[in-house]
Amino acid sequence: MSALEIKHLFGLRGVSKHDIRLILDHAKQFREILERPVKKVPSLRGMTVVNLFFENSTRTRTSFELAEKRLSADTVNFASSNSSVKKGETLVDTLRNIEAMKIDIVVVRHKGTGVPKFLADNSKAIIVNAGDGAHEHPTQALLDMLTIEEKLGTLEGKNVTIIGDIRHSRVARSNLWGMSTMGAHVTLCGPSTLVPRNTDLMDHVTWEPDVKKAVANADAIIALRLQKERMDDALLPSMREYRNTFGITDELLECAKDKVIIMHPGPINRGVELDSDIADGEHSVILDQVTNGVAVRMAVLFLLAGGRNNENA
């Protein structure tokens, strides 16, 4: 139980229980470190991490950057809005130029499915996926899993319900792969225009169109952010109807277990997918998720870098 089987983190589909367990266990240790007065450890001293974000991001990039700094890595932030990408440079050229500056790890977010794997195929750096299109967002799922274990003791046998825009959600995909691997049962629920039509390859999850039934046995509910663009694209009639049908409200929680925990990957649309008093209420563990995000990202970077160091030795 000392090294990851994976060399990069592209997603959680196909990642073994061993690897997920290892990441979560290390994240718990880093979580403790984050509570200390001095939150920094020297694990990645001398290593350089580039945060290569081709999409806007505040919390994920900040979380990664904090994780990197607390592991004592040198960090560089690269945003496409002020980069050579705007001048027509290709993705590969961008990566190779950055790589030529002798970096070790690239954390990448991009609108295109498979970009992290594409970069790994074309470089020697360790690649960590910080979100690729609607494909995967593995560190978000790992922090969700860490939070559930922290609050409920284990993932094994737990019922997790994800509500919202499943079709366009990389968070939902990573969660359903990761949580299924760890023994949780995942139920997906959302309006029919926002859920995938073809579930043949996701047969270990349950689809429940009735939101009340979907939450009835849930130990944890994850509400996904509803993007305003979905209304413009005629996928939904109005935020009001969405809130009344699929929003997490006091009325809906009356159908759920007393000790259900409410999660959200952020940022929240208060009054749409989640009512304000619930986001701030006793069931909410949303801020714990944020804290756990740093710990999980520290664990991922630490273990992937450790794997590479062992390989070089």
């Binding site: 499915t113 299109g133 609607a134 995967e136 079709r167 039509r197 073809n198 043949d200 390859l201 996701m202």
Partner: peptide, 11 residues
């Protein structure tokens, strides 16, 4: 193609 693989991969 819109099918099981596109939905699985989010494409």
């Amino acid at each position: 193609h819109e099918g099981a693989y596109s939905d699985m991969l989010g494409m």
